[in-house]
Amino acid sequence: MPDSLFDVPPVPSIPVRRETATYPIGRIFCVGRNYAAHAAEMGVEVDREKPFYFMKSPASAVLTGAETPYPPGTENLHYEMELALAIGAPVFRASPAEAQAAVYAYGCALDMTRRDLQLSERAKQRPWALGKDFDGSAVFAPLTQAADMAPIANQRIHLDVNGERRQDATLAELIWKIDEIVAHLSGFYSLRPGDLIMTGTPAGVGPVVAGDVLTGGIEGLDPIRLTLTDPL
């Protein structure tokens, strides 16, 4: 095999509760508008015929406890607290039962969003990449294996900014459930271990600034924390 022209960063990975090995990140899929109240606060309607997706690159990922600079190019950075799921087996064109069986673990996640860029690009019918995929925009807490927690149902999901509650909902409000998401997405991609799916955020999103501390949680999962520092 020929030598590489330059070194590349190691593959980012996420700790797994009760495991010494970590979960390497392959791809990050994100479900859009998966809570009706959040879609309403953004002034859009939910597509109840099928879910839709955008992606973040693995290079955007950081772990809970990170201190990340306020990102460049935005004056309206938003938080979005989410449930993430980790695929643990190859799955393609899956039934709902096969899709559920392919889920290895769950974890808390933050989808940080340059909202002004997302909305300006959306208004011009352009991709959202600048608004969604940037350094530190995907934050992950340690994963908990699916076998070690209760089935996803009505667990509480919440987020605080500087100790003040901003998001508070339950996973029962997910429009597209876990098996439906994985089954649908597997009709377009051969999903494999390393693939993460962020399942959408409830209502209550809003702006944050340098110096803010974000803390969030989902019942049964390790909590998440992010500190925003001054811009570079």
Rank of each mutant, 00 (worst) to 15 (best):
K56G: 03
S190Y: 01
L130K: 15
H184C: 10
Q125M: 15
K124Q: 14
W176N: 03
P142H: 04
Y79A: 09
S137H: 08
L143V: 05
R93Y: 10
I224R: 08
T227I: 09
R114Y: 01
Y53S: 07
E67Y: 04
P96T: 01
A39D: 08
V103F: 06
V205G: 14
V208P: 09
E67M: 07
D116W: 02
T199A: 07
N162R: 11
A153I: 02
I157D: 05
F140K: 06
Y189F: 14
A86T: 02
T64G: 13
G204F: 09
A150P: 00
A183W: 04
D148H: 02
F52Y: 13
L143P: 06
S186Q: 01
I14A: 06
A172S: 15
A129P: 02
R122P: 06
V16G: 05
F134P: 06
I175H: 12
A21D: 12
L83P: 14
N34P: 12
L85M: 15
F54G: 04
K56R: 12
P10V: 03
N154S: 15
L191Q: 03
A40G: 06
L63T: 02
P15H: 03
R126Q: 12
R165E: 08
D230W: 12
A146S: 14
G73Q: 03
C108K: 08
R192S: 12
M149D: 00
P51K: 02
Q155H: 13
Y79N: 10
G32L: 05
P51I: 00
R17P: 05
P223D: 09
L117N: 09
A36K: 14
L143S: 03
G216I: 04
R165H: 10
M1C: 15
T227L: 13
A86E: 08
D168C: 13
L83K: 11
T215P: 05
A99P: 06
K124T: 00
L232Q: 08
R18N: 15
V44P: 13
R156A: 08
Q118S: 07
Q155M: 07
R33L: 15
T144N: 02
Q155N: 07
K124Y: 02
P2V: 10
F92W: 13
M149Q: 01
M55D: 03
S95F: 03
N76Y: 00
D3V: 13
V16H: 08
A86Y: 09
V91H: 12
V103I: 13
P12Y: 06
T144D: 00
A183M: 04
P69R: 09
A147S: 10
K124I: 01
N162E: 11
T74K: 04
F140S: 07
G73I: 01
P15S: 05
I178N: 07
T68A: 12
P51Y: 01
G194D: 04
F6A: 14
F188I: 01
R165C: 13
V139L: 08
R115L: 03
P223F: 06
Q100D: 14
I178E: 13
